[in-house]
């Protein structure tokens, strides 16, 4: 058994190094309690629905979410809008389709199977409209940033006047949490910017948390089933390990006397 402790020790050593290197950026992010962390972590449905509202009303004018479809909004483990709500949401967007029999492209109301409508035709158009900076696609944004949800959550609330001695170019803003502190996105959130359907008070903090939760789900739509399955799998493995351990003891007891 002693060997196991050695193995565990080496394991923790190796992965400890790895974790260190990942946490190389030294800024302390703002902390909040995320309902989806931990062994049984689940999304807060109403936060996801509010977050979707923030995304549509604020972010989606510049940021695409090309890997999401309207049907995802009604899927289990997500915001869980009802099927008819999701259909209504989809129908409120104009989707380009075609070509029809005459070879022309046309627009029609969105369907559940459609992907989220993109704000710009392509990356170049997005850059042209945003002073050369491409507003990144938000589908996997949380997983694409080292600090994950804490980083996004902090960034949304990290706008400040630049410290003395730092001059900013036109269209560049100062953000405490941005890598290099210079960001091309202006501060978007202000208290009461959206009017939440469920009556929640739309403070900047609340909106940041909601939209970040929504982005986490967007990046990891199967997080809930992953956590559930993981718990079952590990409990199962532990039970089997115990059974195999005793079977092993029994089998080896046949020769143990001779050892």
């Amino acid at each position: 058994m002693k060997n196991f402790y050695t193995i565990l020790f080496l394991l923790s050593l190796i992965f400890g190094f790895q974790l260190n290197t990942n946490a190389a950026e030294k800024v302390e992010y703002l902390k909040t309690d995320w309902s989806f962390k931990g062994l049984f972590g689940k999304f807060d449905r109403s936060a996801l629905q509010r977050g979707y509202q923030v995304y549509t009303e604020v972010c989606s004018s510049c940021h695409s979410m090309k890997y999401l479809s309207y049907r995802n909004l009604a899927e289990k483990g997500g915001p869980e809008f009802t099927e008819s709500q999701a259909k209504a949401i989809a129908a409120s967007f104009e989707v380009k389709d075609g070509p029809n029999e005459d070879g022309d492209m046309f627009t029609r109301p969105g369907k559940l199977s459609d992907k989220f409508v993109m704000p710009y035709e392509n990356v170049k158009a997005a850059q042209a409209a945003n002073g050369g900076a491409y507003p990144p696609d938000m589908s996997v944004l949380v997983k694409a940033r080292g600090g994950g949800v804490d980083y996004i959550y902090s960034l949304l609330q990290g706008y400040e006047d630049p410290p003395v001695g730092i001059t900013l170019d036109e269209g560049v803003y100062y953000n405490k949490y941005m890598y290099g502190n210079k960001i091309k996105m202006a501060n978007q959130l202000s208290d009461g910017l959206v009017e939440y359907a469920d009556g929640t008070n739309a403070t900047v903090e609340q909106m940041s948390k909601d939209v970040t939760t929504f982005l986490m789900w967007a990046a990891e739509p199967h997080l809930e089933s992953r956590h559930q399955m993981g718990f079952k799998a590990i409990v199962y493995l532990i039970i089997l390990t115990i059974l195999v351990y005793f079977s092993m003891k029994r089998i080896w007891s046949r020769i143990e006397t001779k050892v």
């Binding site: 199962y236 039970i239 089997l240 059974l243 195999v244 005793f246 079977s247 029994r250």
Partner: peptide, 11 residues
């Protein structure tokens, strides 16, 4: 014990 181990393993 062995039967239980096999059965759980098979699952």
């Amino acid at each position: 014990l062995f039967t239980a181990t096999y059965a759980v393993g098979a699952v």
